[in-house]
Amino acid sequence: MNLNAMVEEFGLKVKAGSGSLNREVSGGYASDLLSDVLAHAAEGSVWVTLHIHQNIVAVASHKDLAGIILVQGRIPDAETVAKAEEEKIPLLVTELPAFELIGKLYKAGIRGTQGA
C-alpha cells in the first residue's frame, strides 16, 4: 500500500509533502518518544504519533520514513509544516486516536516493523 491509497482509504488530510505520496509503505511504527523512533523505526515505514513539534520532521528524514501520520486531529505547527515541505516528508492527519488508526492500518495489511 502506498501513501496515496492510505490517504484515500482512511480519509487522511495531507498537510505537507503531497509530492511524495507515491512511496510504498513498508510497515508501521507508533511512538511519541523521539529517541525511540530514532533508535527503532524501520526505513520506509509510516510513523504514527501525536507530536506536532518540528523535530518530528528531522527524525523522519533522518530515518528515511515514508511519512508521518498525526492522530486525534492534531494540528502541526507552522514550522513543522514548512520543514516537512522542505524535506519532502508527507505529513498526514487523522481524527482517530492512534489505537483505532493503527487497528485499521493493520487490518489493511500494514504490519509493525522495527529497524535499527
Binding site: 510497515g27 508501521g28 511504527y29 507508533a30 511512538s31 527503532h40 504514527v48 492512534a98 489505537f99 483505532e100 493503527i102 487497528g103 485499521k104 492500518l105 493493520y106 487490518k107 500494514i110 504490519r111 509493525g112 516493523t113 522495527q114
Partner: peptide, 12 residues
C-alpha cells in the same frame, strides 16, 4: 511486540 503490532492485534 511494538506498539503498532500490539494495537493492530488488540483492535482486530
Amino acid at each position: 511486540k511494538t506498539m503498532f503490532e500490539a494495537c493492530g492485534i488488540l483492535y482486530g
